[in-house]
């Protein structure tokens, strides 16, 4: 069973950001594996624990700095990694990124592809479903539970929908995007970190993938970012101190404000 996990590196979610020259900056902040991709890596490792024949490849599309994310994914228990690395890949939108990922995946055996449900930087939530559509394989998004038949030929997947969940059964090959609740990602063990140093990371350029200049590059982006800004600061709030007054009095004041001034209730 060949499992491919797509991994993106993102800015730490604890980071505060600024805008400089039309770009997001966060000096001194660390980079992390996209939290939803971590659920995907963990799920792959758990499948391998149940199915020794499984082989996990980490697939990452991004600049050199993504090495850190790739190393951590290998330390968590993936077998090998493929890094799609080329300056031509900078600034791709979801569509173009999914096309590049497809180019690689279509060239290798794949039974299960796991992605995060979205990257917490651009927040598009598109790449996984686009990738599956380009590959022509079934997929389920926003999964919170994945169960396999004994022969690993079919999967039963619970996905989140607003106000509930639904269950779908699908045959492999299959792509699933992962949501929080699926599992609790492990921290890499010291043994895992040592083992990761010896695991193979294959680096492929645009040329290696057979992607030429006129083919897939930023000129094919369907979405162009025209401007980026910080949200307007919220106006300064009013403090209704309950410490100095009875809760009943403060509650009455707030409810009256929400009704008469804010007109919310």
């Amino acid at each position: 069973m060949k499992i491919i996990v797509c991994v993106k590196q993102v800015l730490d979610t604890a980071a505060t950001i600024q805008i400089e020259n039309g770009a997001v900056v966060s000096p001194g902040s660390s980079r992390i594996i996209n939290p939803y991709d971590e659920f995907a890596i963990e799920e792959a490792v758990r499948i391998k624990e149940k199915n020794a024949a499984a082989e996990i490849t980490i697939l990452s599309l991004g600049p050199e700095g993504f090495n850190d994310a790739i190393k951590k994914a290998l330390a968590m228990g993936a077998d090998k990694a493929v890094h799609l690395l080329d300056r031509k890949f900078d600034g791709l939108d979801s569509y173009a990124a999914a096309k590049i990922l497809q180019r690689y995946i279509a060239s290798v055996p794949h039974d299960l592809i796991l992605c995060g449900k979205q990257a917490v930087d651009v927040d598009m939530a598109q790449t996984g479903a686009m990738l599956a559509t380009f590959l022509g394989i079934p997929f389920v998004t926003v999964a919170t539970r994945i169960e396999f038949a004994a022969d690993f030929q079919n999967a039963k997947i619970t996905r989140q929908v607003e106000g509930g969940s639904e269950v779908r059964e699908l045959p492999l090959p299959l792509l699933v995007t992962c949501q929080k609740g699926l599992n609790e990602p492990r921290l890499p063990s010291l043994k895992g970190i040592m083992a990761a140093k010896k695991k193979a990371v294959l680096t492929l350029s645009a040329a290696d993938l057979g992607v030429d200049d006129g083919d897939i590059n930023i000129a094919d982006n369907r979405i162009v970012q025209e401007n980026i800004s910080l949200p307007a600061p919220r106006k300064k709030g009013r403090i209704l101190a309950a410490n100095e007054a009875a809760e009943e009095k403060v509650a009455a004041e707030l409810v009256q404000i929400l009704r008469d001034e804010e007109k919310i209730i």
Binding site: R234, G237, R238, I239, L240, N243, V250, A251, L254, V255
Partner: peptide, 23 residues
């Protein structure tokens, strides 16, 4: 409180039931 329009400095365990009652 830096993003709140209205802030109540107090114990939620006491304030919330008071709010429920008032609403």
């Amino acid at each position: 409180f830096s993003v709140a329009d209205y802030g109540i400095v107090g114990d939620v365990i006491k304030v919330v039931p008071a709010l429920t009652h008032e609403f």
